[in-house]
Design a protein around this nucleic acid. Structure first.
Lengths: 126, 126
DNA sequence: TTCGTTGCAAATGTTTTGCACCTGA
DNA sequence: TCAGGTGCAAAACATTTGCAACGAA
């Protein structure tokens, strides 16, 4: 992996994500950072998001609805997506890591991890 | 929901997916169907895939790598994605539906379902 | 000075859509 | 007949990339 150099833009993306819990998209982050960096480009945002994800500092959440979302909380947790308003919410729930073992049982490859996404309707949309 | 009319293209997509277990992309399906329907268009393939998904006849698998994939097997099962060759494989594993209850416990919305995707390296790539 | 980083714009890859024509019921 | 389906092409989106200029070490 290559050497990293300090960049104000990257730091800003990192700290922005650290204080949000609503899993913004790259575009939301871009619009937000433009307040501090009027000339920042979407390309820079994407490049840094990919970088931060590779470093394990943030998580990318892909769902079948719309653009990817980013999460500054890398502590193991699962997500819920509302099928109506498409909000993505952190779930507080007991650890379900054992499903990795269940999946491994009759599988000949190597299971390194899993992503569990729950869906339904959030309390706002019920 | 609107009335459906028979279409050879749709039937062909349906039966094609029914006999594959490798979760092809829309483009793969398109290329394959062109053998029978030289003039079929990608738009038609996408329109029918969306339709079949809405009808619950097929499943769409979204992952963070590349295009969506489609699965003709709607019996409850989970998938494994190889991080190296990006193959998507059906997992034969014990039922883990109980994770829905685990997730519901401290959640105020309504959890209707979940998607569990496992990843790692398949036996070919080990 | 060096090499990673940025802004900009163009390109890419995937999916959706408008429209005129076609087809099944 | 007529609403739904199709092919085609253009558009819409999300994301990536080439390049010349910039900036941190």
């Amino acid at each position: 992996m290559k050497n990293l150099k300090y960049s104000r833009q990257r730091e800003s993306i990192k700290s922005f994500l650290a204080k949000r819990t609503d899993h913004p998209t790259a575009d939301t982050i871009y619009e937000e950072l433009r307040k501090d960096f009027p000339n920042i480009s979407l390309g820079t945002v994407y490049r840094n998001l990919t970088l931060l994800e590779d470093l394990g500092i943030i998580i990318k959440i892909t769902s079948s609805y719309g653009a990817d979302r980013y999460d500054g909380n890398t502590l193991l947790h699962n997500h819920f997506t509302c099928t109506e308003c498409h909000r993505v919410i952190d779930l507080e729930m007991d650890n379900i890591d054992h499903i990795k073992n269940v999946a491994s049982q009759q599988f000949s490859g190597l299971i390194e991890g899993y992503v569990a996404n729950f869906y339904g309707r959030c309390d706002n949309c019920l």
